[in-house]
């Protein structure tokens, strides 16, 4: 396989110069994002430390954050409800590579938390515990970010273990 240096060697004015081997080209997309009316209700309740959800009138699944419709049944989700701040870890990973622009120190634990009464996991960070102890079925509760309460998921700093016994796998098996 030919190299850039070999190709450059044949051109008098470029022979011997350090060849370019890589180029960094950021792909950047700028949006104005609107979360819609259902998620707006969810987000504007966060400063009051309230977790709002919706239930599908047909399949009875409870979605959080709510999207205004049931993606399984394709019908409007009409019933609003409020969920507790406790839930169960249904899956998790340890993140070791810092994402650009994210002000969280690595490593950190990222998980799906199935809030009690919900049928979809909420993305959240797990903290206040050694990562080696985090496990599927672990019971956790929300820790609110008192300094940053606002219409954003940043209102929840992270979830921490409650110390309760692990949840019965039957309680979350269908919603992993």
């Amino acid at each position: 396989m030919t190299t850039a240096a070999e190709l450059l060697a044949g051109i008098p004015e470029l022979a011997g110069v350090e060849p370019v081997t890589r180029v960094t080209i950021p792909a950047r997309l700028e949006y104005t994002y609107s979360p819609g009316s259902a998620q707006t209700r969810f987000l504007t309740a966060l400063p009051d430390k309230r977790l709002l959800a919706e239930r599908c009138p047909r399949c009875t699944r409870v979605y959080v954050p709510p999207r205004g419709a049931c993606p399984t049944c394709g019908i409007a989700a009409t019933e609003q409800l409020e969920l507790p701040h406790t839930g169960t870890v249904t899956t998790f990973c340890i993140v070791n590579i810092a994402a650009k622009g994210l002000d969280v120190e690595v490593p950190y634990c990222y998980a799906y938390v199935l809030l009690d009464g919900a049928n979809v996991g909420l993305h959240a960070r797990i903290g206040d515990t050694p990562y080696a102890d985090v496990r599927i079925g672990q019971r956790v509760e929300a820790v609110w970010n008192e300094q940053r309460l606002g219409p954003s998921l940043a209102s929840i700093s992270h979830f921490r273990p409650t110390g309760e016994p692990d949840a019965d796998p039957e309680s979350y098996r269908r919603w992993m």
Binding site: L8, V20, R22, A27, T32, Y33, G36, T44, K100
Partner: peptide, 24 residues
Amino acid sequence: PEVLSAPLIVEFPFTRSTGPVLGA
């Protein structure tokens, strides 16, 4: 309530290898 909206910037800082011809 009034529907929220906010700026959202998605950026992927791709680094590509340039190969012999484009490198040259």
